[in-house]
Nucleic acid binder design. Structure first.
Lengths: 207, 207, 207, 207
DNA sequence: GATGAATGAGCATTCATTCAT
DNA sequence: CATGAATGAATGCTCATTCAT
């Protein structure tokens, strides 16, 4: 245990990067900010990352990977039998997503705001990450459509729309209103996702 | 008329900025790229803009201003009498938004992707622009709620959700699927906005 | 005349480069040494040269070009009729070469000692310069051989040998013994070139 | 014997240095290149050499030492009785030199091209090495002059000239034309050294 | 209004060297 | 003897901005 709480230089750099990129933004952050925050020397940074962009891309990749592991990958559309199941599953998914992002707000904001702050060369990689998410959503929507649980639609367009809803829901949960209960927000955005804005004004307010 | 098609240096710079920022991104674009693209001298740039960030912020402000003029501002929620009116009005709004963005794809993508690429000092201003949009949406939603046309909800959260839907709808219309009819997309995203994903799978396909 | 003695920034940089590279050597010279010596700003350097190596290569190219213009190119082997002509022409050539190098000793030493101090990529270019000189010498030797004025030999090997003789003759004239008359040295090296070391010990001392 | 073919770390470093310095040049070679090529750790390098320059200077010193042992030192001018002896001895010397250099081409090229690539402080040491060679040549020439075997000349200048001839002869033998017989080249350069370029064109071709 | 040569603060990156193990 | 993670001084180069013309 004496050594287990001793972070490696690499870990210190990753934590510093989340902190500093998240606070000052990618372009306003100097490598010297990262290393001084991490308490390592300049050269040490380059032992673990090729350059400033590399650690940024690592953070983004890592964020997406962990987010998917804890959310989309845990909820197969094929396991849904009826509308009740669907609502329950999607509610859990919203809870997972919002909860996950609330736990690392700096990294979340960084990904939402600055994913595209990289060099033109690296943009493809970032775009792929978003496209993967959309792909997963679309697959999920197709399964539900096949099961007759949701209406037919342009699933690709719908998936992008759902992504936008998720992105701004996360933004709302993390930035705009970080104090409200996750469950409350999960319910709210689940409503929009499934039922849209219309509906009986009387009933929805009580849910 | 002899001089009317002779662009001023400022106009040349603005056009060049949309082109170059939109293609290479804000940070990868040098002032020298702008001036060479505009065909003016370095010094001329600083006759019209305080610095590189100023022209970028101008583009963003201008985009938001024109987008609102041509969309939200033209459709007062107070003029809506029933659900039929609402659907018609929102359909028009979606058409306006998507059509407008399709007409200036480079600037649209720039705003969607790189609005936050500015210095920490200027972020407030960018955030205000988004907040204004959300404010307008929220006001609209409140009016509709008062009229009993939509269900009660956390209007602020809903407004952010609608913003996310709009952002990715625009992205879809401009980047992912630039060839499909605007009307088709407007219909699609209107459905999600108003009805969500649920509903009778049979009927929705025909709308 | 008020402007004619006002050197351009580029000229100042070239002069400073000869001075500083020649004194401290290529690798020990910093770009900051060059610009401070030239009295211009850092950025100005990069207005005129791509990088530190570029100005170095320019100096070398320029040295070779001017040296050839003033020496080899002025003395065509085809104009030589007999041994007397040959001796006279070669004597002039030696005088030109040694005199030229004496006039810019720093640059000369730089080329002799540090031509290969460049990056692996740029070596080819430097080697080509030497190969061109050897090519010219070889052509000259072939013409003389055809005319029956010199003995048959492996002209390429001989040309390289003559280059070596010239290089160290220059070194001797510029570095080792910078005070002795050029004519004396020209005579001395001409003897070695044409007659070698052998010969009647009595007569050669008097020439 | 089981351990005799197991090179020490120092030997491995020296061999790696010849290989890598010879291939990439002194300045383009990193200490990390040396140690990775030698298969030892970074720290090990500094057990045997004070710094990067030290191993480079060692290589140069060692090259000069071995070259002199196997060439100049074996052929005392005092043992020469007549022109026939002289020619025979110099022929052997040329064979020794060219043969020796052919056996370690990378190190040879390194010395010819990059001896001056060291820091200003270390240049003196390199220059001394060349001066020693010239000193030996000059002594030899003086002895021969005293013996009346060669003509009188400025022996110092001649010695430098001979050095140049040797340097480029080596270059020719190792780099330009590495396949031709050493004896052929030895004969060729001996001719130039002793007889220069002039002479009966008819006879020299047959030698 | 327009120019563009000149500026220089600012920054990413390298790599020889050290030293605790 | 050997290791290799860590160091940080050193430096090449960029590019937004200025100002004399």
């Amino acid at each position: 245990m004496s050594r287990s709480n001793k972070l490696t230089s690499r870990d210190r750099l990753v934590r510093a990067a989340i902190e500093v990129f998240g606070t000052r933004g990618y372009h306003s952050t100097r490598v010297s900010d990262l290393v001084s925050h991490a308490g390592v020397a300049h050269g040490t940074f380059y032992l673990y990352f090729d350059n400033k962009e590399a650690i940024f891309l690592y953070l983004i990749d890592d964020f997406f990977t962990r987010l998917r592991n804890q959310t989309l990958d845990r909820f197969p559309g094929s396991a849904v039998a009826d509308t009740g199941d669907l609502k329950a599953q999607l509610f859990e998914m919203w809870r997972s997503i919002l909860g996950h992002c609330r736990r690392e707000p700096l990294l979340t904001v960084l990904v939402l705001r600055e994913s595209y702050a990289v060099s033109p060369d690296a943009r493809t990689r970032v775009e792929e990450r978003f496209a993967q998410i959309v792909g997963s959503i679309e697959t999920y929507l197709k399964e539900l459509t096949e099961l007759g649980l949701i209406r037919r639609s342009m699933t690709n367009a719908s998936a992008w729309g759902v992504l936008g809803l998720i992105e701004r829901a996360i933004h709302y949960a993390v930035v705009v209103n970080p104090d409200v209960e996750v469950d409350t927000l999960a319910h709210e955005f689940l409503q929009i996702e499934l039922n849209g804005l219309l509906g009986d004004p009387a009933e929805s307010g009580t849910a």
